[in-house]
Design a protein around this nucleic acid. Structure first.
Lengths: 328, 328
DNA sequence: ACCGTCATTGAAAACGTTTACTGTGTGTTT
DNA sequence: AAACACACAGTAAACGTTTTCAATGACGGT
């Protein structure tokens, strides 16, 4: 455990005042070149790293950003986290992460706890209610991810467009009766996907069977599969990949062939969709870019607090693999 | 954006000195009950939250812990992260996370950058070399995850025991010639798994074909599958689940049936191993508990710096699913 | 009545920075 | 030659806490 080297140590060894050291490091143009170099050399030599806490105390900026997600085991959120991490590093910011275990109450508390230690927080919370989000936006600088709300900056993914691509694809294959397996009704994502789907469907001659809600997990898919088959649909659009995998497993157990007997699509493009058999047709969500974008929006907002509120939308992309085909 | 309320505001409103407020919050028994209550009431009323940075400045403790992982997209590490997050929250610590993108150089730099802002860091770094880890251990309080090193606390998972269970299982099924597909040679995990395998194999009459190294990913499995089949083995033990999935896909494409023609095992028990077809026999790593344990070890060490170095080991568990069967 | 103990509080120093404010000297303009 | 601007560097105040030290008063024992 090496003892901490402070700005004072550097100052002494470089024969200057602490102010000069500080300036040499943070506003180089304020000190003469020769002095600056001497200071920097000493600093490097001693392995000096400024104490961010002390700096933050006076500047009011911590150089940290926070992100709270509902579940770190969900690849969707870790993708986002990866993007956040990455972009934050580029801007030499550190990242606080908190996992709420899908508990909206915890989410609110976590954001508040973070608020003191970060310049702003990125909130991935499909569940928490609008009123509370607004209060949080008051308490700290907030950026929402994959959720739109008036007056709050947001990094969005255009799932409507993804759903349109799905429908166009299925219709082109000749499907006329399609089931949608809803995820949680209250989730912003589900609303968006459902909305996109309905709009897309209206442009074609297609029956949409709106089913659920189901838990957005493997088990939800197992349960939904039989219900969907009973509706005599020729294609099933699942709320997300994990559910689709559940559907796939249940259909296989029942001897229903995919895509020969029924087509199936997922949403999110989690890695294992590509690895399973047959590989899953799905919509790729730009999660990592979205994480990046969220950081940009946050930093942007911090830089000039009274610019217009940006809500940027990233495009999604249909990935056609092997679970979709013309109906029998 | 609410203005920050400081300890001074509380002091003024409660008609006491700042010292008393501080005491009321951090060492309640030092102030008279009636005063304490008044202070606490005012604090709650104003929504006062102490500024951790300022506190840290004087106490030397930040109340934060850091974790650096090679890849946030790898479920193994996010499992650990989840455990860390969880346990840290219990101890009211916040968590810094950094993703090194598998770059050992970045890992070192990230740990150093974190060092100033955290009380200690948990390092999940199979790759970084021992000398550097030692230097880092000097710079901050370090706990290693899934890697053993003299003098450094570590949260370990007993992969040796997992490998023994795999071998016993395969031998019981009647296998005599088994391939092991190595992951990266330098990785501590690979060494451990390989060591466990070799020891287990010696107790039986079994030929072990030691192959690789292969990249520990899907593509590595694709590549390894053909090589392993050429060795006329009846069972393949892959370094991890992702590789095993690659093997599975390649074998299916070649028309080799699993488990009828060849048995296959993975390692890690990532979720999708259970979801694929056929479900993968593998070894479950207690990743979340390991994350928890790491936090405990870290906090322990911080509490009394000169206690003995703990290196605790968690048990692994063979999960028999459908990719293993008696040889043809 | 005096002394010592103890509980309770306040004043002020410290933590490691940044940043106004001040003070030098140098060069340029008149 | 005087005046002035300016580049550079130092002094000290601030940021929001915790903690040492000292002060006050109450109380019990002699």
């Amino acid at each position: 455990m090496s003892v901490a080297v402070t700005i004072r140590d550097v100052a002494r060894q470089a024969q200057v005042s602490v102010a000069t050291v500080s300036r040499a490091l943070t506003s180089p143009d304020l000190v003469r070149a020769t002095t600056r170099e001497r200071v920097l050399a000493v600093a490097a030599d001693l392995g000096y790293q400024p104490n961010l806490a002390a700096r933050g105390l006076i500047t009011g900026k911590t150089g940290n950003i926070g992100i709270v997600v509902p579940d770190l085991n969900n690849p969707f959120f870790t993708g986002v986290l990866k993007g956040v991490q990455n972009q934050a590093r580029m801007a030499s910011h550190a990242v606080f992460v908190a996992d709420s275990d899908e508990d909206p109450a915890a989410e609110e508390q976590l954001v508040r706890a973070m608020a003191k230690q970060v310049d702003g927080v990125i909130l991935c919370s499909p569940g928490i209610d609008e009123q509370q989000v607004r209060e949080l936006a008051d308490a700290t600088t907030l950026v929402l991810l994959n959720r739109r709300m008036r007056g709050v900056p947001a990094a969005l993914m255009n799932s409507g467009s993804g759903m349109r691509q799905v429908v166009d694809h299925l219709v082109a294959l000749g499907h006329h009766r399609i089931a949608f397996l809803n995820g949680p009704r209250t989730s912003w994502s589900n609303k968006e996907r459902r909305r996109g789907l309905r709009i897309a469907v209206q442009r074609h001659d297609v029956d949409l069977v709106d089913m659920g809600p189901f838990p957005p997990r493997y088990e939800g898919g197992l349960q939904a599969a039989d219900l969907a088959m009973a509706e005599k649909v020729t294609a099933i659009v699942a709320y997300n990949d994990i559910m689709a995998l559940g559907v796939l497993a249940r259909l296989r157990d029942r001897g229903v062939r995919v895509p020969e007997d029924v087509s199936l699509t997922g949403f999110d493009d989690l890695m294992f969709g590509a690895l399973c058999q047959p590989p899953l047709t799905t919509v790729a969500m730009p999660v990592v870019p979205a994480g990046r974008l969220a950081v940009d929006l946050l930093l942007d907002r911090l830089a000039n607090r009274d610019a217009e509120v940006r809500q940027d939308e990233l495009d999604t992309q249909l990935i056609v693999r092997a679970t979709t085909a013309p109906p029998a």
